[in-house]
Every structure is written in structure tokens, then in C-alpha cells.
Nucleic acid binder design. Sequence first.
DNA 1: TTCTTCACG
DNA 2: ACGTACGTGAAGAAT
Length: 554
Amino acid sequence: MPPSTPGTLAFIAADPEGFASIELRAADSGAALGAAVNVTRQEFCAAVQQLELAHSPRWVMLRTSPWCELLTAQNVYLAKAHVLSLAQRILHRSPAAGALEDYDLERAPAPSSQPEFQDALFSTPASGESLDELVAMYAAQRAALPADPVLRAKLQLLLNAESIGAVIASEMENTGLAWDEAAHRALLREQLGPRVAEHQRPAKLAALAAAVGAALNTPGLNPDSPQELLRALHRAGFAVQSVRAWELEAINHPSVAKVLEYKKLSRLASTHGDAWLDQWVSNGRFHPHYVLGTVASGRWAASGGGALQLPHSIRQVVRAPAGSTFVVADGRQLEPRILAAISQDANLQKAGAQDDLYQWLIDAQLVKDRRDAKLGMLSVIYGGSAGGSAAVGAALKKNFGAAMNYVDSAARAGERGEGVHSFLGRGCPPADERWMQAQRSTRDEASQRAADAAARSRGRFTRNFVVQSTAAEWALIWMGHARHLIHQAGYSQLCRQVFFVHDEIVFECPVHLAEELAGMIRAAAALAGRTLFGAHTVNFPVSIAVTANYAEAK
DNA sequence: TTCTTCACG
DNA sequence: ACGTACGTGAAGAAT
């Protein structure tokens, strides 16, 4: 990500008469640099392109839509952005930021991303998106930034990273993820049988349902009904608490195996069946919709198509077109490294200097194997103490005292109803009214217990928040740096980011550029660590797989 | 509308 | 000393 220098701002607002109004302003004084330019939809991309080349301004917009999808389609690259709606949410919740007038973002409903509605949309001028309103909102946001130079720089970095993240999300939505629809249909035919009408059971699934009914002596059983299935299992002599797969897996019996087989196939049919393909895959590409600014920790969500829960079993149909390949990169052991950086725990930082943090824990004889290393770290970061993870966690707690104190004090703050924040200053949501009420009503033992449980629950949330939210910031900055390096190398059109899941990025590029791209991704990861934590940060290695088939990564 | 289950990190 | 694994979205059943 380029450093934020006082330069030029370019506001993009809706023009009620035509399409868009663009106005340049000086970033330091806020003074307008010439009159606003009104452009038609046809002129828009060329106008933005020309200003980008001449000034490389920070593009200020209420939200990326509808601007970025048009720009992406025309391959117009924006280096810097400030997305007001996202900045508003961050500033509103950040403990470092000053008071900010509540701006009613619902006044200007988000334009539909459905292409068929866009023409209708563009003929109706959007309200609440005038240049004046955007300029005022931007000024208010600047005024809300803290005076302290360190806090200010951090929050500014977060706003820039979040904004460029939104641009990347828009680019990914437009590009889509290469999806072999024919292979997917073939897989459905093989496992489910011929296609049937929606909400009907395909032949092989129906046969399996009947087999489950027969095995449990309950003809006509609907295995999709947890109640029916649980009763049938009990009658057949299986003393299970629920019908959850992990509980059934403990039982070694052919009847139960049939149930598990049904569950697996039923899931494929309902979540990634023919209807899913019809709705989400077009022209060989899966186009999910990424949602920023809703998850408290700053992680992204996706609505539609369940993009962030893509099962490993279906990834075999994610295939790069001929001549292209995927470069799949993920931040190795990201959360423990983040914890080492934010807690300044010397011992954990020593572990974090290694490319394989878990191996270091094994070599130091703190844990016996990788599974325990991972389990122990999760226990520390999530606040777990149940079962086996407690013992493993205890070994780590002894050796990483400063890291433990860091997450423990975050947990204590949460239990007291206080807020915590990420490294860059993203604040966690305040304790809600019901929670506060529960803390006060402790007259009898039962309500006291309930209040304590709620407090501990919130403590686990804030304990995790400080790590997860900072990890999300690292990932955002990693992506931003990668995009910038790719652009600098002149590969923006050739190497495209096509997928993102929390700590993993998938790029698609021509086969001959894969190694070079991998180098840029590694460099971006190292830069992200330094951007966040300075020159003496822990190591942030990434593991990279080059493959034309997503299922073969990892 | 809420609950249960299961997919992902 | 004690106690609790964190965060999401989607589908279908249950209410």
C-alpha cells in the first residue's frame, strides 16, 4: 500500500441530472481544486482513468457501488480509496476516535448489484449522495480522527486498508472464481442421479433415505428431521444425545453409517446442488458477494452462495482455464504470530521468528506434536479449558506469560463490560443492554450464575477479538500490498485476485507468471508485517500452492 | 421467526 | 481454585 501522503482527494458523487460528479480537493486544506465535473455514464470510466493517471488521488465515495463495478469492467485501476460508509462504522466504534454525528446510511439504499436493474437505477438519481454531503461527511470523519499522532496514523491506516479492501472485493465480485460447471453437474449426476425439481429428493438420495428408514425399522422416516431421526435412533437402541455427525461417528454400526452417508449426500444436494449452480455460476464463474463492515472483528462476510464456507469436497470443480493457474496463498499460523506481535511476548516472538511456529513449540518440547500445538494455541486464543486442550494450553501459558496476560486482560475487560480494540483501533461492540441488565440482576443464585456465564462468554469474545481483529487487519494490508505490487509490475490485467477467506488469497494468472506472482505475494506478506508492527516484527511467512485445481492446494 | 446442523477460517 | 473453546452463512425443520 502506498504511504498516505497529503495529496489530492477525488470525490465521486451521484449526479441527479446525469450520472456522476467528480471533484478534486486538496487533502490538507480541503479546498476545491477547480469546479466539479459532471460526467455521463459513458464518460465516467475515461474521466476517472485520466484523473488517476494525472493525480493518483484518494478516491472518496460513499460506497464502492456502483462506481467500482463499472471501473473494474473497464480495467480502470484505483490506487487509493476512502469509502465513507465503511470509515463511518469504524470511526463510530473506535475508542480512539472522537464523536461522530450519526449519518443515516439507510437514507441512500445500496444500489442493486444485479446488472439487469442497473439501467433503471442509473436513471433514478440517488439521494443523500451529493458532492456537498460527501465532502461534509469526509470532513467530519477527518475531525473525528484522534490528535495523538500514533493513534491517528494507525486509524488512518485502517481506514485506507478497509477502503482498498472494498475495492478489491468489488474487483473479485466482477472477476469471479473460475468454476467448471460441467464437472460439477457430472459430479451431481454421479452422486445424486438425474436432476429433479427443486425441493425434491434426487433418486439416489431418496433410495438412501428409504435404506435409513429400513435400517432403523422406521419406514417413511425423514432423516432430515432431527426429531424423527433421534427418536428412530433411540428406538433402534442407540443412546445418543443428538443426531450431530460427530456424535454418530463414534458409533461403529452399519445402520448409523447409513445415516451419516445420507447426511453427507443430503448436504451436497441442498447446498451445492443444481439450484446453487443455476443461481451463482454464470459463464464458468462463481460470483459471490463479499460483505465488509458487518463482522465485529473486521473479517469479511459473504452473502449469497456461501462463498466463505466453500466445502473442500466441492473445490475439485474450481479449475483455472487452460493456460492459467491458481496461486493459492495462506498466512501460516497467522493468529499466534499476531498474538506474539501485539503482546510483545519475547518467547512467542522467538517462536514467531521461525517459518514453522508449531515446529518450534515441538522442538522446545512444549507440546508433543502439531495437533497439540494447534490445539494449545487455539485454547489460549479462544479461552478454552475443556477437555484435552486445557492441559496443552497450560504448558503454553507457562512459557508465554506476556501473551497470556495480554489475552487474559482482554478477557477481564470484556467480563467487566468494557470494550477492547484491535491493534489499529477497531473497537469491539459495547456490551448490550440485556447483558448489562443480567449483570445487575443477581438477587438469587440462578440469576447470579446466569450473569457470571454471560460475563465469561463476553470475556471469551473480547479475548478472541484482540487477536482475530488484528489478524483481519494484517490480511487486509497483505492484500493491499499484493495488489499494489502486482500493479507496479504491470500485471494488473494478467494476475487477478479471485478469492479470499480470512487468511487465504487465491489469484489466477497465466502459468508462466505463477512463480513471479508467488514472489510478490511473499513480499506483500513481509511488507504487511512491517506496515503494522514496524521493522522488528515477527516473521509472516505464507505457504503457496500453484495449481489449476483448487482442491489440490493444501 | 427460531432452532438445529454443518460448512469454512 | 474455578470456569468456557472464537467468529461467520445457509438450509430445512420446528414453532
